[in-house]
Amino acid sequence: MQFKLIINGKTLKGEITIEAVDAAEAEKFFKQYANDNGIDGEWTYDDATKTFTVTE
Score class of each variant (00 low, 15 high):
36 D>N: 11
50 K>V: 08
32 Q>F: 12
33 Y>E: 01
43 W>F: 09
54 V>F: 06
22 D>Q: 13
29 F>D: 03
46 D>Y: 12
51 T>E: 04
19 E>L: 14
3 F>Q: 00
27 E>Q: 15
36 D>F: 14
33 Y>P: 00
56 E>I: 10
10 K>W: 04
27 E>C: 10
14 G>L: 06
45 Y>A: 02
3 F>Y: 15
15 E>N: 13
30 F>C: 02
46 D>L: 14
16 I>L: 15
3 F>H: 03
56 E>T: 13
47 D>R: 05
33 Y>H: 09
9 G>Y: 07
21 V>T: 14
44 T>K: 15
30 F>L: 09
47 D>Q: 12
44 T>D: 05
32 Q>A: 14
43 W>T: 01
48 A>P: 08
35 N>V: 10
24 A>P: 05
41 G>Q: 01
40 D>M: 12
15 E>Y: 14
16 I>Y: 06
36 D>K: 13
11 T>E: 04
44 T>P: 00
29 F>N: 04
28 K>N: 10
1 M>Q: 13
31 K>F: 07
6 I>P: 00
37 N>M: 14
41 G>M: 02
1 M>E: 14
27 E>F: 14
17 T>L: 07
33 Y>K: 06
2 Q>R: 11
34 A>D: 00
47 D>S: 10
1 M>R: 10
17 T>A: 13
53 T>C: 03
33 Y>V: 04
20 A>E: 10
19 E>T: 06
38 G>S: 05
55 T>L: 09
11 T>C: 04
30 F>P: 00
20 A>S: 10
40 D>E: 05
50 K>W: 12
26 A>P: 01
47 D>L: 08
17 T>I: 11
51 T>N: 12
18 I>V: 06
31 K>S: 08
35 N>D: 12
15 E>M: 05
12 L>W: 10
26 A>T: 01
29 F>K: 14
18 I>W: 10
26 A>C: 02
38 G>L: 13
49 T>N: 06
10 K>S: 12
16 I>G: 03
7 I>C: 02
42 E>C: 08
49 T>I: 12
35 N>A: 14
12 L>V: 15
7 I>L: 15
20 A>I: 11
8 N>I: 06
28 K>R: 11
47 D>G: 07
30 F>D: 00
35 N>I: 12
35 N>R: 12
55 T>D: 05
44 T>E: 11
34 A>K: 02
23 A>M: 13
28 K>M: 06
24 A>N: 14
18 I>R: 10
6 I>G: 03
17 T>R: 08
21 V>Q: 11
30 F>N: 00
22 D>P: 02
47 D>C: 06
41 G>W: 09
40 D>K: 09
14 G>W: 12
16 I>E: 04
35 N>H: 11
48 A>K: 14
14 G>P: 08
2 Q>M: 14
26 A>M: 01
29 F>S: 07
6 I>R: 10
24 A>G: 10
28 K>F: 05
27 E>M: 10
8 N>R: 13
4 K>T: 09
3 F>C: 01
20 A>H: 05
46 D>Q: 10
26 A>Q: 00
10 K>C: 04
31 K>P: 00
12 L>N: 06
41 G>E: 01
47 D>P: 10
50 K>Y: 12
43 W>L: 08
7 I>P: 01
25 E>Q: 15
29 F>E: 05
12 L>D: 07
2 Q>Y: 06
29 F>Y: 04
44 T>L: 10
21 V>C: 03
33 Y>D: 01
16 I>Q: 04
13 K>I: 08
47 D>I: 15
4 K>L: 05
23 A>R: 14
8 N>P: 04
13 K>M: 15
3 F>W: 12
25 E>I: 09
8 N>F: 11
37 N>D: 03
37 N>A: 13
3 F>D: 00
17 T>Q: 06
51 T>D: 02
13 K>P: 12
10 K>R: 09
53 T>M: 15
48 A>T: 10
42 E>P: 06
18 I>M: 05
20 A>N: 09
49 T>K: 05
41 G>C: 01
26 A>H: 00
37 N>Y: 08
51 T>W: 06
40 D>H: 15
27 E>W: 08
43 W>A: 01
1 M>P: 03
20 A>Q: 05
6 I>K: 08
35 N>M: 13
5 L>N: 01
52 F>Q: 00
54 V>D: 00
13 K>D: 04
25 E>R: 03
43 W>P: 01
54 V>L: 06
11 T>S: 10
29 F>Q: 06
31 K>E: 03
17 T>G: 09
13 K>S: 11
6 I>V: 13
38 G>C: 05
3 F>E: 00
35 N>Y: 11
5 L>P: 00
4 K>H: 04
42 E>Q: 07
1 M>D: 11
23 A>F: 13
26 A>K: 00
54 V>P: 00
34 A>W: 03
31 K>M: 10
17 T>W: 07
52 F>G: 00
50 K>S: 09
9 G>A: 10
6 I>A: 11
34 A>S: 10
7 I>D: 01
52 F>W: 11
40 D>A: 12
38 G>M: 11
55 T>R: 15
4 K>M: 03
32 Q>P: 02
21 V>A: 05
31 K>Y: 10
7 I>N: 01
13 K>F: 06
33 Y>L: 02
1 M>G: 11
24 A>L: 08
43 W>E: 00
27 E>K: 05
55 T>I: 05
19 E>P: 06
36 D>C: 03
6 I>Q: 11
43 W>N: 00
43 W>V: 04
15 E>L: 11
15 E>T: 12
30 F>E: 00
38 G>N: 06
54 V>Y: 02
37 N>W: 11
6 I>F: 12
25 E>L: 08
53 T>P: 00
53 T>Y: 11
22 D>T: 04
47 D>H: 09
30 F>Q: 00
36 D>E: 07
24 A>K: 12
6 I>M: 13
18 I>K: 09
5 L>V: 03
19 E>M: 15
54 V>R: 00
45 Y>W: 14
52 F>E: 00
17 T>M: 12
21 V>D: 11
8 N>S: 13
11 T>N: 07
